[in-house]
Write a protein that binds this DNA or RNA. Structure first.
Lengths: 238, 238
DNA sequence: CATTTTTCTGATCAAGCGCTAATTTACAGT
DNA sequence: ACTGTAAATTAGCGCTTGATCAGAAAAATG
């Protein structure tokens, strides 16, 4: 998983099928059906904005696509509309509802569930494009970002802490609701893992090759350490 | 610590002494000594670039300073020079060498040392300006960023793992060198804490008011869970 | 082949960008 | 109060930016 990649995170040597002719010569004019061209623009825009940020210029994007700049505006009335579409494309349908079932599957030990979840999760979103678009849009203060974080809190962190309690015979959140601090432990596990992606694609420094091993170790650390912390939190208040 | 702030992280109502007249009326021309004006520009540039990124325009910066735009160029030959100066100002001299001594003070239990270190560390760098400038410069691929991360790895993470081993009678790194995976545990603790800052100043979502309590809990989790993980890592390799 | 349809390009605009040069003006030293 | 000096402004240059629009050209249709 997470194969050897270049700094963009794309397979080395990749020049994917749909991909544009980067720095192609004066290609003959080619007409494409509306949907196809549109998709082409969106996909290259994702790569492009992920690389340089949303202030990247439409002329440079057009050059990478091997088309003229005004053509972009025949598909998206404004640059902002294109950016909005990029958000949709990046965030949409990368969420797998089966993750939530996995976290609740008490036939498996909690540690196993967590490693499996984070393996799947990181496989889906640990990409150059996703991580950088997420951070760029965060810096811009875009709303979709905050909605995503709320989703993760409700669908993942609450589940994780519910299961952690159950695994150690502690009261369910129905009886003793979560404190801010308790949920924060799940944020902590998540942060320790997501920070790997930040190091790789935002700071662009070397990270361990064996990401899955690191995830397993972080989860192990969490499973060994967190229950006692939760127990203390509950007993102190109760 | 970390008082109630607005989204910029500045005290609400603050309009600090040196600060510029935001949106001031047509102020009378005011002459300042060279050093003073220079400092003024740098400080506002930090706030400004932290907010909008390094593509923020010199005209807007000048407006916030209550000066004309060409004046900036009498102090900094190019915009890039000003940005370079911003890096220096932000990163320089926020590192306290006493932190390193604290981590090695074996009169204190390791958990206590770690909480004290992270309290001090976050107090120094958990600011709107530092965190956002750090991420913006990371996205830009600036070198100073990578140097900072190398500093933290050598001065903090290696120390933390050395102390963790010592506290549990495990071999010193001189005898059994650190594996990538082992150092990664310290990265994990760091990530779980730094991610709080990212949530607050990059994503700009609500975070717990009691940061120190969260830090204490993360450290507790680490101290309870990590030793067993390290022990396994060492024994597996022989 | 001729005609229609629709994609795509070339030329261009108005606004905004970093930066420069000439000029004005606040203040210190006498 | 006068004068010299250096801080500050005014005006503007050359280039880039997102966006417009008339017309060229490729495919679809008959």
């Amino acid at each position: 998983m997470i194969p050897e990649t270049d700094s963009r995170g794309a397979q080395i040597g990749e020049e994917d099928g749909v991909g544009p002719a980067q720095a192609a010569g004066p290609r003959k004019r080619k007409r494409l059906p509306r949907n196809e061209r549109e998709q082409m623009i969106v996909e290259e825009a994702i790569r492009f904005f992920a690389e340089v940020g949303f202030e990247g210029q439409t002329r440079e994007l057009a050059r990478r696509l091997g088309i003229t700049q005004p053509l972009i505006f025949r598909y998206f009335p404004t640059k902002e509309d294109l950016i909005e579409r990029v958000y949709q494309e990046v965030y949409l349908s990368r969420w797998d509802p089966r993750w939530e079932e996995l976290l609740e599957d008490r036939d498996l030990p909690l540690g196993k569930r967590l490693t499996e979840f984070y393996k799947a999760y990181t496989k889906a979103i640990f990409t150059y494009e996703w991580v950088r678009i997420f951070v760029y849009s965060g810096l811009k203060g875009v709303n979709i970002n905050k909605r995503y974080l709320a989703l993760i809190r409700d669908r993942v962190f609450k589940r994780v802490m519910t299961e952690l309690r159950a695994a150690h015979g502690l009261p369910s959140p129905d009886d003793v609701p979560f404190s801010e601090a308790e949920l924060e432990l799940a944020w902590g596990l998540h942060g320790s893992i997501f920070y790997i992606a930040i190091r790789k694609w935002i700071y662009e420094v070397e990270i361990p090759s064996d990401i899955e091993g690191v995830i397993a170790a972080e989860v192990e650390n969490f499973v060994l350490g967190a229950p006692a912390v939760v127990e203390r939190m509950i007993s102190v208040r109760g």
